[in-house]
Amino acid sequence: MVGLIKACVRVVSRGGGKKQKPSSSTKEEPSPPAYVKVACLLGLRVSPSHRRLGIATALVERAEEWCRERGAAHATMATTTSNAASLALFTGRFGYTPFRRPELLGRPVHAHRLPIPSAHRVFQLPPPLAAAAYARLSPPQATEFLPADMPALLAHKLTLGTFVAVESGPPEPDQSAPPSFAVLSVWDSTRSMRLRVRGARALLRASLAALRALDRGAPWMRVPSVPDIFRPFGAYLLYGLRMSGPAGPALLRSLCHHAHNVARNNPACAVVAADVAPDDPAAAAVPRWRRFSCDEDVWCIKNLNNADDEDGWPAPAVRNCPVRRSPRVLT
C-alpha cells in the first residue's frame, strides 16, 4: 500500500432551503428546510517514497467519484494552514474553497476535580429529550451542518451524555424556561483516535514527569500536572455547545468542568477539547490551554455537481452552528 484516503457521506442541513424564484404574482418565500448529502474526505496519506507520482490526485479523484455515486452534492475536507501541499492540491488542482476556520480549544485532564459553583446545577438529558432540546435550540432553518441523524448521534454509545447546566433556585412563576442555561454533549474519541506529542525537548519531558511524581506523592498540593502526552492518548470532544442568558458563559464553563471531571474516570483520556467558530460567543467561555489548542484548521468545500449552486453555498460563517461534524467526530 502506497496511498490512502477515507471518505464518508452524511445528510446535513444547509441553514435553510432553496428560495423560490419570485414571479409577478408571488413574493419570494423560503421553502421548507433543505438537507443535502455532504461528503467528507480525510486522512489522505501517500508514502514518502511514492510522492510526486500522481497518487494523491488519483486517490482524491476516485474518492470524489465514490461520493458522487452515493448522491453527495458537496465534498468537504479539513487541513491546516501549515499544510501547504494539501491546500495546494485541494484548492488548486480540485477547486475546493476555504469556508470555515474553526478553533480547537483543548485543555489537559488533571488528576484533581475541577470546581463547579454550588449555585450551578448540572444534570444529564436522556437521548430522546436531548434530541428534542437541540431541535428547538438549533432548527434546521437556521443551522448549518446539523446532521439529519442527530437523534442517533446523541444515542450513540460513544456519546457519553448530553448535559445541561442551570442556576439553582426555584424558577419565577411566569417563566416556562430558566433565564440562563448551557448545554453540551460529550463524544468519547479515545476508542477511535490516538494522539501523541512528538519533538519535545528532554528537559520538558523530565519537568512534566517530575510534576506528575510530585502530584502523586503530595496530592494535597493540587499540582496541575499534565498527563503523559508523549505516549499515545485519547480525547473527549465536546459538541453541541449552546448557552443563553446573562449567566450562560459561567454555566458553560461549569459544563466544561463537569466534562473534565467525567474524563478523569477514563485513564485513556488526556485532553478535553471543543471545535468552535472564532466568532461564536461560546468560544470565550470554553476553558483552554494555549499549548493544547489550535487555530490553524481550515475547512474547504466543493460543489460536486456540474451545475452552479443557486443558493450560493458555501455561505458566510453562521454562528448558530452548534453541531459541527468535523473529521474528529466523523471518523
Score class of each variant (00 low, 15 high):
P98S: 10
L44D: 05
L129M: 08
L125Q: 00
T91A: 02
C40R: 05
V46W: 00
G43V: 04
P32C: 12
L59W: 11
S138R: 03
V60Y: 06
T81D: 08
R101V: 06
S23Y: 06
R107N: 06
L137V: 02
P30Y: 10
A34S: 07
P126G: 03
H50I: 06
V60H: 03
S49K: 14
A63G: 11
T81G: 10
R107A: 09
A78I: 01
E144A: 02
S86R: 08
H120V: 09
S25W: 13
P30S: 13
A39F: 03
E61Y: 08
T81E: 12
K21F: 13
L104E: 07
L125T: 02
A111G: 15
H120M: 10
E65D: 14
P140I: 08
Y134V: 00
L105P: 04
V46H: 06
P102L: 09
R113I: 07
A111D: 15
A131T: 03
T79Y: 01
S25E: 14
Y35M: 05
C40Q: 05
C40T: 04
A78P: 00
L137R: 01
R93W: 04
A142Y: 11
N83L: 10
R62D: 15
K27T: 13
L59V: 14
G92Y: 03
V122K: 04
P30M: 12
G95Q: 04
P102I: 03
I55L: 15
P32L: 14
A142P: 00
T76W: 08
A131M: 02
G95V: 06
A88G: 14
V46Y: 05
P128E: 01
P102M: 11
S25G: 05
P33G: 13
E69Y: 07
H74Y: 14
P98G: 06
T26P: 00
